[in-house]
Structures are given as structure tokens and as C-alpha cells.
């Protein structure tokens, strides 16, 4: 524990700026993955244990597109759409066959998908790690705010993730599609009775969730190494976010992602040896005090 350092940081503007910006960026990237996970659970009632693999595939698709085109924008689009298509395929051909069966089946299908995708990327892209590197046009000097460093690329990441989050909130809250999706989450039978094809809704929601994971993978490809098996560590953190935020609650996922982001950025100063432990501690605390999570309404 180094609480005096934490105190020193909290009273220093430069430190506050740097750590806040770092926490926001980490948190928002995490939110993209976790929101997909929680969306899929909320509507389809499926825990996509293979969600981390979709994140990894997004990064690989982006890497491939960047290699061909040299454009980061195209890379992110390719990562997002590629993961979404893969998600669509997974939902249509694998998961839709086991709707209504118990969790064990979901677990096994997802486990199989993780095993297969890890090997597929190894066959296609090789077993060694890859890195995209920050594209030259985005490699600009960092912003210095109040003496604190905010890297240019982090600012872009934050802006893009914030736009995606806003679009998601608008799409779910204000559009007809969003209303149908929310209705389907509560009572799919009723939605079906109204003449809406729930099969299409399910497939679309899964594809969107997968696309969000893919987008996170693609966006972080320049600053994180892309490697087979990269999905697992992301998956665990996203799980923690969904549990803290409440499964199925996108707002809860946002709050939880930011809490974890700040725990990481400020925790590395105040309690560097307990950052991982702190995340689990927060989760345990939430589960004891409010088992349905921050944003959860239904009792578990």
C-alpha cells in the first residue's frame, strides 16, 4: 500500500489528468467488450463464453485489413464487421440449435468455439504475436493538460468508444429496433405474437454484440499485441464488469467499466500490488450488497 503516493497524486493536477484519461480509455475499451456480452445475455439469455475470442478475431481482421490497405479506419471497420459476421454465423449455425437447453450446452459450444478459433488464427496468421503499431498519421505529440500527459491516440480511442457508446444508447433507447429488442428481452413470446420475427432479432443482437467485441479488438490492435489466446484475459475482466454492472444492463456495464478503469489507473499508484485483487474484491462486495448488480432490476 502506498496511500501517501495516492494522496499526492490526487492533489496534483498533472497526475489527476493523466490517471483520469488512462482510466477512461481503459474503461471504455472494456465497456465495448462487456456491453456486447451483457446485451447478448439480456436478450438471448446466453452467456457467450467465446466473447473474448470474438475480440481476438476483431484484432486479427483489423491487422489483416491494415496490412492490405494501410488505413486504420478501414481496419476498424473490417474488425467490427468481420467479428459481427462471425457472430452471426455462430448464432445461426451453432447457438440457435441449443436455445432453451441448459447452461451446460452453451458452455460446451462456446468452449468448442474458443478451442477452434485459437487454432484457426494460429494456422492462418502463425503462432507468434503480432503488432499493428500506432499508424503514422495518428502518431502525434500527446496533449499536455495541466502538466498531465494525454496521448493523442488515447484521446482518439476515447472519442471513438464514446461515440459508439452513445450510438448504442440511442439505438437501444430511441429507435423502433431498440424498443423491439428491449421488449424481446422481457417477453419474447409477446413480441413474436405481434408478428415480429424474433429469429431475426436474436441474430441481429448477437451480431451487434460480436461487432462491439470486434471493434474493441480492432481499436486496441495498434497498442496491444495480437496473439492466439488473447481473448481469455479480456473475457475475465468483461465477466467482472457484467457481474458488477448487472447482467443485461448496458448502463450498469458502463458504470462498472469505468469503475474498473479507475481502479486500474489510480490503484497502480495507491496499491500497485493489489490492483487485480481489488477488482475481485469490488465484485464480491457488489454481489453481497446488491446481488443483481449496479444496474440490475430483476432479482437473481
Amino acid at each position: 500500500m502506498d496511500l501517501t503516493e495516492l494522496g499526492g497524486c490526487l492533489s496534483s493536477l498533472s497526475c489527476m489528468v493523466t490517471q483520469t484519461a488512462a482510466g477512461l480509455t481503459i474503461g471504455m475499451l472494456l465497456f465495448l467488450v462487456a456491453s456486447g456480452l451483457t446485451l447478448i445475455f439480456g436478450v438471448l439469455g446466453i452467456v457467450n463464453f467465446a466473447h473474448g475470442s470474438l475480440y481476438m478475431m476483431g484484432a486479427y481482421f483489423a491487422l489483416a485489413a491494415y496490412g492490405v490497405s494501410g488505413s486504420f479506419v478501414l481496419a476498424v471497420v473490417a474488425g467490427t464487421l468481420g467479428a459481427a459476421l462471425l457472430g452471426l454465423f455462430m448464432e445461426r449455425f451453432l447457438l440457435s440449435r441449443i436455445y432453451g437447453q441448459d447452461v451446460l450446452m452453451q458452455l460446451l459450444v462456446c468452449y468448442a468455439v474458443i478451442l477452434i478459433l485459437d487454432d484457426v488464427v494460429k494456422i492462418v496468421w502463425g503462432g507468434d504475436f503480432r503488432s499493428m503499431g500506432v499508424p503514422d498519421e495518428l502518431r502525434l505529440p500527446p496533449f499536455i493538460i495541466g502538466g498531465g500527459i494525454v496521448p493523442y491516440f488515447y484521446a482518439i480511442l476515447f472519442a471513438v468508444t464514446a461515440v459508439i457508446a452513445a450510438a448504442l444508447a440511442w439505438g437501444m433507447g430511441r429507435t423502433r429496433f431498440g424498443r423491439i429488442v428491449r421488449a424481446a428481452a422481457i417477453n419474447p413470446g409477446m413480441v413474436g405474437a405481434l408478428g415480429i420475427n424474433t429469429t431475426v432479432i436474436y441474430a441481429a443482437v448477437f451480431a451487434i454484440g460480436a461487432g462491439l467485441a470486434g471493434a474493441a479488438g480492432a481499436l486496441s490492435a495498434p497498442i496491444r499485441s495480437v496473439v492466439p489466446g488473447a481473448g481469455v484475459s479480456i473475457l475475465i475482466e468483461s465477466f467482472i464488469v457484467t457481474v458488477i454492472g448487472g447482467m443485461g444492463s448496458i448502463g450498469g456495464a458502463l458504470a462498472a467499466s469505468l469503475i474498473l478503469g479507475f481502479t486500474r489507473s489510480f490503484g497502480s499508484i495507491g496499491f500497485p500490488l493489489f490492483v487485480e485483487g481489488a477488482m475481485f474484491a469490488i465484485m464480491a462486495l457488489v454481489l453481497i450488497l446488491r446481488p443483481s448488480g449496479l444496474g440490475g432490476k430483476r432479482g437473481s
Partner: peptide, 19 residues
């Protein structure tokens, strides 16, 4: 050396085929 690919495929066939 493609252990995951084979095990994963066998598992999928079992789960989706036999259920």
C-alpha cells in the same frame, strides 16, 4: 499440433448432433 481444432470440432459434433 492442432489439438484445439480437433477437440473443438468433436465437441461441437457431439453437442449439436447428440445434444
Amino acid at each position: 499440433e492442432h489439438h484445439g481444432l480437433f477437440m473443438g470440432t468433436i465437441l461441437l459434433i457431439l453437442v449439436l448432433g447428440l445434444r
